[in-house]
Design a protein around this nucleic acid. Structure first.
Lengths: 167, 167
DNA sequence: TTAAACTTTCAAAAATTATTGAAAGTTTAA
DNA sequence: TTAAACTTTCAATAATTTTTGAAAGTTTAA
């Protein structure tokens, strides 16, 4: 496979993978592009490379910055803004873990705690509801703890952990 | 909070959470409903409870069955089919881990392996591409190994693991 | 058999989400 | 200041995904 082909394939794959995980295609593709660019890219560069509009590029870049995985990079003497992504893949994983915990798991935990706390009227329906929502709470809580653990550890924690788990 | 309110809130929340993860609302809601039902439900029951059409119910039930987290349950002497979900939350987690590995991580690994294997022509662009796609491969591989570990272990592995990680 | 009871399929419609592009906004060099 | 260079916003449009509902398909009791 040639570089151009490989690059296209990678960007395409990352794009559809994003969709599968609730991240939109353009956002995932911009991220993929920045991830493999040795140099920061301008908005023009990104628009051209991915064939997307200025507005689309601008909005998705903002979201990536919100997620903390893309940064603005000013080039000396240039007015234009450049963008670069987090290049350390472990740091990327940590940042994603951090954000998914904050955006998804925490709000879910809140609701599960709330609904599992209804008064037990003794009916089979209520008993099952309480039992299952409590079990889900525990599962989500464990998942959250693991994510936080990932989010806060040193760079190669994930790999080390896995090695430990194999033992 | 009253039972009816709590139930609605739980089903709603599970529905939007699904959307966020690339699972459609109806599918997530059907799953939520079955998860908290002490008795198996018929298609009519589900349609009525969630206000969704017969076709929608049928298709999403099939998907849930495909995922291995909902089962057909025949009631003696009844022609109608009933449906019930996996009630053991740890088993649910394992099944989801299994499917996400199979459906998402494995195909990604395949592409990453492929594209990271291009010939190094010595350019900065190619070098960065190879480096980053290899690093992503390792991350995805670790994630996959963890998922498989979850998928294959005994019921409360997840909890135990977490306790171990705390030490 | 057949017909009633039930489920699945799928084309059309509705709902949602993503994208565009031009106008409005902002920043900076002169 | 101002005007050029650039970015952001947002209403309109396009693309995608979900949902519906009725027709086709299947199963079972008699």
């Amino acid at each position: 496979m040639k570089m151009t082909e490989a690059k296209d394939k990678f960007i395409q794959t990352w794009g559809s993978l994003g969709t599968l995980w609730g991240i939109n295609k353009a956002m995932a593709q911009i991220h993929a592009l920045l991830l493999i660019s040795p140099e920061p890219l301008s908005m023009e560069d990104i628009m051209e490379e991915l064939h997307i509009s200025r507005g689309n590029t601008s909005m998705n870049l903002r979201q990536l910055i919100d997620w903390g995985i893309v940064f603005k990079a000013s080039k000396a003497g240039e007015r234009k803004e450049y963008f670069t992504s987090e290049k350390d893949i472990n740091e990327l994983a940590r940042q994603i873990a951090r954000e998914r915990s904050r955006r998804e798991i925490q709000p879910t935990l809140k609701v599960l705690k709330e609904v599992s706390n209804i008064e037990d009227d003794g009916s089979a329906e209520t008993k099952e509801f309480i039992k299952q929502t409590k079990a889900l709470y525990e599962l989500a809580d464990t998942a959250d703890a693991i994510l936080n653990r990932i989010a806060n550890q040193e760079s190669n924690w994930l790999t080390k952990t896995f090695i430990k788990l194999l033992k």
